[in-house]
């Protein structure tokens, strides 16, 4: 990964982590499984979808709309990077 991409990934991860932490009222490590740990309810899962779409101007459609893509801050960061065309 180039220096540029690392920075992008980091800042995306930070933005997502800040949103999640604020909503669950606790610090959330990037690799923590949000569903398994019960931190994310099914209603909050949909809020995450809407938040990512608005914050990063992406559209999450079709097969991308599955729980695995929202399982952790890391997974969401990867999704946003991919949708932004930064493979």
């Amino acid at each position: 990964m180039s220096q540029d991409l690392t920075t992008t990934a980091e800042s995306i991860a930070q933005t997502i982590a800040a949103f999640v932490s604020k909503r669950v009222g606790a610090d959330v490590p990037a690799d923590k499984d949000l569903f398994e740990s019960g931190l994310v309810s099914s209603l909050f899962a949909m809020e995450l979808v809407v938040h990512l779409e608005q914050a990063f101007s992406v559209q999450i459609l079709g097969d991308d709309l599955k729980r695995d893509n929202f399982r952790s801050v890391q997974a969401m960061t990867a999704l946003v990077l991919r949708l932004n065309g930064a493979e």
Binding site: S42, A45, L65, K66
Partner: peptide
Amino acid sequence: TQQMRHGQLMG
């Protein structure tokens, strides 16, 4: 529309 996406998200 959003609820249907939510339903899909949750399988």
